[in-house]
């Protein structure tokens, strides 16, 4: 019985973590859908904006909400710059090479951030501490609640934005068929740029919320979050935005349940198991859980 509570507790933590992976995945899927680029700079872009939030909190003494806004704005601007100056000029290169472009961007951001903020792990204070309420042995921390609420509001808001606003519709059109969108008078370049901005901003939210739960902030703290986000996106189907959410939640929960299993080696091989599971799922469903099955063309 006690074990059951333990598993439930880990599942709850898993849902909160999963929400953040889902946000990371959402940002990457958005960028991929409109520009065909797998953004390996997502981790470093997120790290940079989280550092901006850190500076706002510690040096400028801003409130947490203000720091979050600063991070979002910084991320948005970085996203625009990256699209405009690194990716758009490289449109003639094979798509597979653009992966390397985003990697180059990651290296530059990482180096610059290292020069500004140094190479140590810095403590990241967080206003929401303690538990919100408990049911039996289960505790719901304020942080978990905030994470879930933010992820829900952000993704619902984003879906509404895509569905009902003019720019959102233009984004969906661009994702489906660039040429047709261009013929319809949509400025595809501007939409791509905007998607990079929004994708980065969504990542920034995840970054600022997740950092306090890890030890603190340093240059490489976001890499594993991004990889799990990437895995989540792939698991969900990579072209599917709801798929990114489902994938993120699944990975968060599964990963935490592996921690809960009280056998030493299971916890130690946790990442191996998570990846093995992903590979297994993909072997059965090659286009992810919610991905469109493409027909084999000639």
């Amino acid at each position: 019985m006690e074990n059951l509570w333990l598993y439930l507790q880990f599942a709850i933590n898993g849902i909160a973590n999963g929400c953040l992976y889902a946000l990371m995945a959402l940002g990457m899927v958005l960028i991929f859908k409109t520009t065909d680029v797998v953004n390996f700079a997502q981790a470093d872009m997120t790290m940079l904006s989280t550092f901006v939030a850190y500076t706002a909190l510690t040096s400028w003494k801003w409130p947490f909400a203000g720091a979050l806004v600063a991070a979002i704005i910084a991320a948005f601007i970085v996203g625009l710059i990256v699209e405009r100056f690194a990716l758009r000029p490289a449109q003639n290169a094979p798509v597979i090479s653009l992966l390397i472009t985003t990697l180059g961007v990651a290296l530059i951001i990482n180096a610059v951030a290292g020069g500004i903020w140094g190479y140590q792990t810095l403590p990241f204070e967080y206003p929401l501490k303690g538990r919100l309420f408990s049911i039996g042995n289960l505790s719901f921390t304020k942080h978990n609640a905030l994470t879930v609420v933010v992820a829900l509001v952000l993704s619902l808001g984003f879906f509404a934005f895509l569905k009902f606003t003019k720019i959102g519709i233009a984004m969906r059109a661009t994702a489906q068929n660039k040429l047709a969108a261009r013929l319809m008078g949509i400025n595809v370049d501007r939409i791509s740029m905007l998607c990079w901005g929004i994708g980065a901003a969504i990542g920034a939210v995840a970054g600022v919320i997740i950092t306090p739960t890890i030890t603190g902030i340093n240059l490489n703290v976001m890499v594993s979050v991004m990889l799990k986000g990437f895995a989540a996106a792939v698991l969900g189907g990579f072209t599917s935005l709801p798929g990114a959410l489902v994938g993120g939640l699944l990975i968060g929960v599964i990963e935490n349940l592996f921690i809960a299993i009280p056998v030493d080696w299971v916890g130690q091989f946790r990442e191996t198991f998570v990846f093995a599971l992903i590979i297994l799922i993909l072997t059965v469903r090659p286009h992810g859980l919610l991905g469109e099955t493409a027909h084999r063309g000639t």
Binding site: P89, A90, T101, G104, V105, L107, I108, A111, V112, G115
Partner: peptide
């Protein structure tokens, strides 16, 4: 060194592909 190396390496990747 770390800053210059990162910017140089990353910049080269970006520029070569462009």
């Amino acid at each position: 060194y770390n800053v210059i190396y990162g910017v140089l390496y990353g910049g080269l990747l970006v520029l070569v592909i462009i």
